[in-house]
Structures are given as structure tokens and as C-alpha cells.
Amino acid sequence: MGRSDMKSLCNGNMLGWGALILAFALVPVLMTSQYQLNVACNVLIWALFATSFNMLWGVTGMLSFGQALYYGVGGYAIGLTVTYLGSQWYFAAFAAGLLFTLVLSFLLGLLVIRVGGVYYTMLTLAFGQLAWQIMFKLYDFTGGDDGLQGITLPGLLANKVYYYYFVMILVLLAVWVLKRMAYSPFGLILRGVRQNPNRVRFLGRRVRRNQLRVYIVASLFATVAGALMAGVDGSVHTDMFFWTTSGEVILMSVLGGISHFFGPFCGAVVIILIEDIVGAHTEYWSLLIGSIIMVMVIGFPRGLVGGALDVAAKVRATLQGAKHDDTTLTAGLGK
């Protein structure tokens, strides 16, 4: 890649980030009701959760069905601390949740990465469901299936607009960090692990150590997402730990496209909006999502972003009368 290409790419990136920040920053200014702020918060948080999940699946090839565990840890770290100790402990709870995830994901990671493929997926599912069952059973402490309500936020965060900006800054910062990570030498090793673990070993890199690292990283960011969600709804529920929550991020990733960094982000935006807009008019919203997923899998196996890029490339090729250049797509992780 030449210097001018690099410069153009940087400019493109800067423009992209600028547009992303601007779009979300304008939501409180343009919104016609507080509800749109709520939807935007949901979009941002689920986008972070899905993006962090895709570091495992799309980048490293580790399909985890148990990331809801860490999302739930984040939510309940805030929920339990604020309920029992008060909202002044909010930031301490945030840190405690991350610390707990760090230790838990390290210990569980050591176990789950020992197996690969479907066995890894089943183990992550089993640990996730175990955590859900524990939270469900501890009625007196966690509220069981009733969950915890009345989670208040400290100081300025109690204001919904300020809290939105807090969520926005943290999420965009986290996505930026994840993106840097995905394209760092560490990210290249992870992609190597997905494509051919033996080659990574021959290159002198440790496969399991890198798998453990990305498992911990993805879990930490899932915890950030869960902790932020506790403040949006003012309540947490054991559903946060349930396998369907893990299923939702898988769905978002498939819809957006797992081979593109922003695929899961786009998938989250689309799923939340469909759920919201279609769900308001019919109880058959899940039929629509099911149909869309079916069409996507058959017609656009590389997701919304992959499909859109294909279409754009074809249009460009038709307009220029030239064959389209598909170099980035074949690299497996477009920007």
C-alpha cells in the first residue's frame, strides 16, 4: 500500500468516525421525544455487545454461545451494588464488575479454549446457563426472575441526556479500541487462528494464549455493555444471562456480516429498529426478522455490509466498465 493510499484510508477513517460521532451526538438535538434517546442507547449498547462478540466469532472463529454471562455480570454488578449500597457506588460497581469478569473469564477461558468447534460452543453455553440458573435461584439476593428495579444513577448521570452522552462516549471509545485491536498484529494473529491454527503455531505464536486473550477482551467489553444497560432501563433481569441474549448478538452479527468489523454494529442497529418499528404494529415481528435472516443467509451470506459492498462494487464496475476489485472482501475482514 502506497503512502497516498494510506493517507486516503486515514482520511476515510477520520471521515467515518466523524460521521459516526456526529450521527449519535445529534440524537439528543434532533429527537422529538425522550424515547428516541432510549432507542439510541439500546442501539449503542447492543452494537458494542455485538462488536465485542464478533472479536471472538468473526475475527478468531470462536463461536461463543455464552457471552450473555458477562453481559449479565455487568448489569448485575451495577444493579446489586446500587440496590444494596446506593448510587454513590456506581463507578466502584462498574470497576468491580470489570474486575470480576477479568478473573472469571480468565478461569473459564482456561477451561473452554481447551476444546474447539462445537464443543467450545457447548461449553460456553453450559457456563452461561449455569450462571443464569444461579442468579435465578438466589431469589433473596438477586430478586430471581423478578430482577432488580429502581436502579438510580449518581449525579449528572441521572439526567437522561447526560447519561446518553456517557454511553455514547464509552461505546464509541470501546468500539475504537476493538477496531484498533482487530487490525493490530494481535488481530492478525487472531485471524490466523481462525484460518489455520497450525500455521500460527509454526510461526512461533501460541494459539491458546491468544484465544484466551481475546476471550477475556470480548468478555470485558460485554460487561461494559451490560453495565451501561442497567442505567438505561433502571432495572436488571435474569434474562440478561439467558442463552437467548447470546443468541441475539449472534443474530445481529449474522445479519450485519461477521466478516466486516462494523457488520455486527449495523446488525444491531437494524435488529433494534425492526424490533421497535415492526413490533409496534404487529406481534409477528419475529416472522419478519426470521424472513430477513433467511433471505440474508441465502442471498447475502456475508451479511448486510458484505452484501451492500458487493452491490456497490457491481454498480461501480458497471459504471466504470471495469471488473470490480474485491481485494478487501477476500481478506476476510473488511474495514
Binding site: 476515510g12 477513517n13 467515518g16 455490509v305 478487501t328 473488511g334
Partner: peptide
């Protein structure tokens, strides 16, 4: 470049 188009999709 495909990267820029990814951004466009996200913006839409």
C-alpha cells in the same frame, strides 16, 4: 476502497 463503503453502510 471497500473500507470507505463499510463506513457508508454504517452511516445509512
Amino acid at each position: 476502497m471497500a473500507g470507505k463503503h463499510g463506513w457508508k453502510c454504517l452511516a445509512v
